[in-house]
Design a protein around this nucleic acid. Structure first.
Lengths: 345, 345
DNA sequence: CTGAAAGCGCTTACAG
DNA sequence: CTGAAAGCGCTTACAG
């Protein structure tokens, strides 16, 4: 058996080895193994037997080079251990698997630090395409580089202005607006919003939607022009900003986080100050992460179909990989307001 | 500029194009771009300018084929959207990035369904190595195939008997045993354990450790030979088994989950039955997932350094990729018992 | 139905 | 310091 003659001189078995043993040409082995026509049944079987016996495995790298296209896609995200993106990644991987593609996951830094490096890696590896999350407006030039190099890609969740490409997300404005109406419905008059980063268009639209419905209902948004309105999507940021707003804005009926992680920080601050949610104040978040409905105090939030987002994005990408080349499409997936303990008195 | 002459006939610029424009040979361009000696400073600069001007990007696929080794590693896990593995993945990706390697993430099914297919993919893509989580004993033959093909890999978290390879995990027995001592310390006399899958050696050792310390303290393990002792690592499984045990085993002082997700299910069951934790009964989990300390009722658990596990595993793998070939090593990372509300009266 | 030859885009000895 | 040639392991027209 090939491969058992000592560790120093070990070589993987190549297609040429199979051809030699089977007594046919490399071309015939290639055709047989790839199920192409023009190989007699008898030879086909013989080649398969020899290949199996030798433990032959095709070399995908050589295949890709020769065929001129790879069967891998790239997914760029801020952090796989962020459950939001982990769910998106799951959807992407699922569709990629179904298409026989591998998924390569890269981490961009929290401020898109490495996006350009990642894009270049995708290019160098000749990936079939890419999916980008956590985009901010400054990334437009990098995405344009990708377009110049004809690498198909889709924008997930966040959009970036001035780059015509497929996008998949939800209607953040509508989500924010529905949440605002609910907050008004339950009688709040003085509300503060602790949003996400100012350069995320998704975060921005959530805030705009929320504030538009709130003010149309005559509800006061206390920190409209305040620094607290935007910040990082972290629990500590939520807690710190909640404290700041509670110190500065007088009585508050409800505090809304730009996502559930921020809302968790808000709940931390409430615990620290002895504020009883929902008796003394209401709290809501965004995203419907699993941790938002663990334990006795469950969070009101807006559901975002994260896996579906990943799946739909991957489908868009595979359309393009398979040759579709129309203008950028937009898929707006359904969101849903979920009312739980923290806004129910 | 190359690449602007119409969409129908677009070609990426190759090293040969750079050579032609710069008026040197391909070999010289290669040496210059790869920082090899033997290229005059003047020529080196000229080549760089031409390459940049043309928008040249090296073709990693061709490089890999020629050099005979890839700069990608594979990571197999049950599900990236499982936060346990997402954290492990984060550690792996971090170290891979530092080494200039890409990380390819594959999903094995819940019962290792696709592990063999994934292993073959890793082989076919000529990956530099692989990291495997969620392994069960039936996977030994697949791992041996990898060894026969000389693909370096490491086993993460779960171990599988009979496969000599690097392993990184924690001392699950000791973790279980410490948890058992704590449960005994707070005065419990009748305890049930709702563990993970029977073919996971990590789950098994947690149970063995817990039960050994419990019985040495004279505490009764109610479901020692019961079907409820093992099951899937899901919230519903935890809840269902908690109900079963509460129905069948008489009074219970504490219910311990094989991981935090199961413990969450136990808490669900308690809520449904009106059992007040920790007043009426104590609950503990394992893993210290972030959701275990959200909200007012925080879970006692055993911390597992998940990112470190991923990092250490990747370091082991890179040792081997860089030529180390000693026998399988074992890294036991520190765990820590974390006592919170659910076992504090 | 089968094979000889060329080529995907690089890098690596080897000569000069 | 630079270049011509061979080759990594495949696949793809093209002949026979």
């Amino acid at each position: 058996m090939v491969g058992s003659e000592g560790p120093t001189s070990w070589k993987r078995v190549r297609l040429a080895d199979v051809a030699a043993v089977a007594g046919v040409s490399a071309a015939t082995v290639s055709n047989a193994l790839n199920g192409k026509p023009g190989v007699s049944a008898e030879v086909r079987v013989r080649i398969q037997v020899v290949a199996d016996g030798l433990g032959y495995r095709t070399n995908t790298v050589a295949q890709e080079l020769r065929r001129g296209h790879s069967r891998s896609i790239g997914l760029a995200l801020v952090d796989v251990s962020n459950p939001f993106y982990a769910d998106v990644a799951k959807g992407v991987i699922e569709v990629a698997d179904q298409n026989g593609f591998a998924t390569l996951i890269s981490h961009v830094g929290p401020e898109s630090e490495h996006l350009e490096v990642i894009a270049e890696t995708f290019l160098d590896r000749r990936l079939a395409g890419g999916l980008f999350t956590s985009l901010c407006n400054a990334d437009a030039s990098t995405l344009k580089l990708l377009q110049k190099q004809h690498l198909p890609f889709v924008k997930l969740v966040r959009d970036v202005a001035g780059v015509d490409a497929d996008w998949v997300g939800i209607d953040d404005f509508a989500g924010g607006s529905e949440l605002g109406n609910h907050i008004a419905d339950v009688g709040c008059r003085r509300v503060a919003f602790l949003g996400g980063p100012s350069d995320s268009n998704a975060s921005a639209m959530r805030g705009v939607g929320l504030r538009s419905s709130l003010s149309s209902r005559g509800v006061l948004v206390l920190n409209g022009s305040d620094a607290s309105i935007s910040g990082s999507l972290s629990r500590t940021s939520g807690s710190e900003r909640a404290h700041a707003v509670l110190d500065q804005c007088g009585p508050i009926d409800a505090l809304v986080g730009g996502n559930d992680v921020i809302a968790l920080g808000i709940l931390d601050a409430c615990r620290e100050r002895g504020i009883d949610v929902p008796r003394d104040m209401l709290v809501a978040g965004f995203d419907n992460m699993s941790f938002s409905h663990v334990g006795p105090l469950q969070l009101t939030t807006v559901n975002v179909p994260r896996e579906d987002l990943g799946r739909k994005g991957a489908c868009f990408l595979f359309d393009r990989i398979q040759g579709y080349s129309g203008p950028g499409r937009r898929a707006v997936l359904p969101h849903e307001l979920i009312i739980r303990d923290t806004t129910t008195r």
